[in-house]
Design a protein around this nucleic acid. Sequence first.
DNA 1: GTCCAGGTCTTCC
DNA 2: GGAAGACATGGA
Length: 272
Amino acid sequence: MGCGQTFVWQRDAHGWTGAIGRRWVQLESCKTGIIARRAAPVSDWSWLKNYLQTNVCLDDIFAAFPDDDLHLKAAISACRGMRLLKQDHWECLASFILSSTKQITQIHQVVSLLRQRFGSRITVPDGFPTMSAFPTAEQIARLDEATLRECKMGFRAPYLLDAARRVVDGRLDLVRLESLSLDEARDGLMQVNGVGEKIAECVLLYGYGFPDAFPVDVWVARALRECYFRGRNVPLVKLRAFSAKYFGEQAGYAQQYLFHHIRTRGRARRNH
DNA sequence: GTCCAGGTCTTCC
DNA sequence: GGAAGACATGGA
């Protein structure tokens, strides 16, 4: 949950607490799997299984990676079990619009402010802090730029507003993108002001499950240059072209493991 | 105080 | 079509 795909989960003494849609959830890993707790008893957990993509066999994913890639092998062993999530389309798009040139801790802050101020309150168990859902496109579209800027999102405010209004008035049909090819879906998302190739790929990977979406951000670019180009300053377009060919049909998973590995490795170094 | 962060857009050549 | 600068905010 701390792997940069989503910005809603908070770690506490019992694991991770967050909301999937309007459902408050607490997740705790144990030897046999994951313990999930909700505010009230439930019998149907299919929405959580879908979110966590528990039906995906990671060994099959790893088998599709390039043979004998020691960098990928190291990244996998550093965080074995990490999965790509299947998030809500709108929440994912909105969150990544807010992500450009912001540190991940700051994205969490902005998303948290947005939820608190404009999202609908959701039910939490007694004794737990209040929580709100991520505001819908309709809730955002009703606001103005100045109000959004109060959530510390700066120049990204008009971008978020543009996205929300496109979704509300139908110019952007987020459901329809599911049935398109990766290229077509990416083009669709990039109609939104403030959504470039990188943000579009993030949404298509974390919100739609396109297996070969491959966001190249500063971290992934750093990892690619270091691992596959001997640290040379290879331009972004060449890195993208290389990735599209090299990593294969499960490139998105390769990206996520490389991203997580280079970030956590850097953190470990700084702590020494 | 300075640098830079899960980028993108605009301007200028 | 590619390089350079602008854009808000705050963590490190």
